[in-house]
Design a protein around this nucleic acid. Structure first.
Lengths: 345, 345
DNA sequence: TTGAAAGCGCTAACAA
DNA sequence: TTGTTAGCGCTTTCAA
């Protein structure tokens, strides 16, 4: 069957393409098209299986009904979980999702955004790497809806959805302290993103408030997993006064567990563990791992909600959402030896 | 700055839009445009930052330079890993990826494919659920390139990339048998997809060849994780002669580990475990879990390679790729008790 | 309440 | 070797 155009529909209904277009775009009432004609057109469209040509439509309207999802790494469990929920919700509302992964690389991200802009996407959900302020600002200046998540730019007046990373870290440290651990290290990345800084600050401030000295291992972002395992392992060996580690991301926790296994340390008696960003993995692991759960569903739904609102009205005021996290205490941070307070190690 | 059109470029170069269009589409040589003029046009495009209007272009050519990635669940580690690699490679070659998750639901998949077709994507990479034969065939009939993966339709003459599931299962069972396990169960889904059937058959045939009786727990696809954990737990309790379990998917292995933990069984001495589809998780878990690793990178690159070849030429012969898997033996299937052969349990 | 027609930016057949 | 021009299918202004 040959592709039908709006002209064919008009012909079959003995009317003009204008009228069909009005009906097609829900302007039948506004334009006071007779109910009879409207029904006839609708029925013809239904019967013939006519579909609008989206190129021609886009050419006139500039709309693609597509949303760009730009994340650090789509294969990371956190981001793919967000991708899954956003997808579900966006599709229900008539939008498709194009994704890409930045690797947190500024140049790559700039390139990707440029490519996406060429595609005339209707809106963006982005986890921006450092240095993307200009590109984001430029999107905003061009009235292209953007919502950031996971991290944001404090100097930019943008919509975003993040979690309260500072207090999440604080909760983690306080929990460890309360559970009897005294030498708590932080393993984090060298990334200067807001979420990492907040996690860092939450840890540092709480440790200092507790009269302790912060102990921090910063791993370069571009190091491989194997390199990180080695670094963590070496750090643990060198600082054997440590009795707890707080990992600032899910993948660092993975790498940390590998290092701990290598050293044949027992969790939690030799070393306690708390991870940022909960996963099935942590619940199932032996011993189960205490983790800070991000409200993935809330984050995702809020993101798509804000974005669609912005897409519908450019008058929507900027919305900055900070969601709180949930510390899920498991066995990795609960001592089994009751004599621990005397520091027998 | 106002959007530039091909007309503006033509004017600035004192030439026609045709010539510019030829240069733009790499037909400068074919059309014997003078090098001088070509350079001038290229430079003007560069200087002005002119970008083609993709709607207008698409309207003429019918091309979107977008690929549809339709997987079972983008948040599953296997699929998101594939998504990651495909993305990387597609972007290098000028394509963007639109994704969606089917939940292995036939109706939903049909709906999604319909929506994607409206968008005029240039090609598709699909993990089809049962019952999608017609839709796939219709894509092929319409000369729209499609490559299936993970599973396929034996009755359809389609390109696909899968792994040798039968022999993967066989390897798993033989390894367990060789390691001294005698009562090996299979935990799988009730799904009738080829990959699941092959895993099933590989297990069954090998068990029978070994003179044993197959023991199979089939879990309905639509059951929740919690329901599955319960089912597996009940199954293990009821069949306490079992000394090994082979899980046919990564998420079933997760659920199985939860069940085993609940029952406080020790791996591998109480029960050995082998999982299909390797993950970081399995390497790090205590004890580390023996798993069948799918060659994710090879699968992904082969997929995009076949698809792009098909997009370039509709004469490309159908390619059916079956990649072999790699059984990674870890501690979950290696007995520590040497007296095991006497069945002390 | 409906229709005619302009024009969006591009490709490519045809003309020069 | 380059230019003219006819559409592609649609939205929307203006006219009836």
């Amino acid at each position: 069957m040959a592709k039908l155009s709006i002209r064919d529909i008009a012909q079959r209904c003995n009317t003009s393409i204008t009228t069909v277009s009005f009906v097609l775009n829900g302007k039948a009432d506004e334009k006071r098209i007779s109910t009879e004609l409207k029904e006839k057109i609708l029925k013809t469209i239904e019967d013939t299986g006519y579909k609008q040509n989206l190129f021609a439509r886009g050419m006139r309207t500039g709309k693609t009904n597509m949303i760009g999802l730009i994340v650090e790494d789509i294969s990371n469990a956190f981001f793919s979980a967000v991708a899954r929920i956003i997808e579900e919700d966006a599709y229900k509302r008539g939008y498709k999702i194009i994704y890409c992964s930045t690797d947190d690389n500024t140049e790559k991200s700039k390139e990707l955004i440029k490519l996406f802009i060429e595609r005339n996407l209707d809106g963006y959900i982005i986890t921006p790497p450092k240095g993307l302020e200009e590109e984001i600002q430029s999107l905003i200046n061009n009235k292209i809806p953007v919502v950031l998540f996971d991290r944001y730019f404090p100097d930019l007046e943008t919509d975003y959805v993040v979690v309260d990373n500072f207090n999440a870290s604080k909760k983690a440290v306080q929990h460890l302290t309360g559970a009897g651990f005294e030498n708590i290290a932080l393993v984090t990345t060298s990334s200067a993103q807001t979420q990492m800084l907040e996690r860092y600050k939450g840890y540092e401030k709480t440790i200092i408030e507790n009269g302790k000295e912060p102990k921090i291992l910063k791993l370069p972002y571009d190091h491989s997993a194997a390199q990180n395992v080695k670094s963590i392992s070496a750090y643990l060996k060198k600082n054997n006064e440590l009795d707890a580690i707080f990992f600032s991301t899910n993948y660092l926790a993975f790498q940390g567990l590998e290092a701990i296994n290598e050293l044949k340390l027992k969790i939690p008696d030799d070393i306690a563990v708390v991870a940022f960003d909960d996963q099935d993995f942590f619940r199932i692991y032996n011993p189960s791992i205490t983790a800070i759960a991000q409200p993935v569903k809330d984050i995702s739904l809020k993101l798509i909600d804000i974005l669609l609102q912005k897409m519908e009205s450019d008058k929507k005021p900027v919305e900055k959402v900070v969601l709180s996290t949930n510390l899920i205490v498991r066995n990795s941070s609960l001592l089994t030896r009751k004599d621990k307070l005397t520091h027998p190690k």
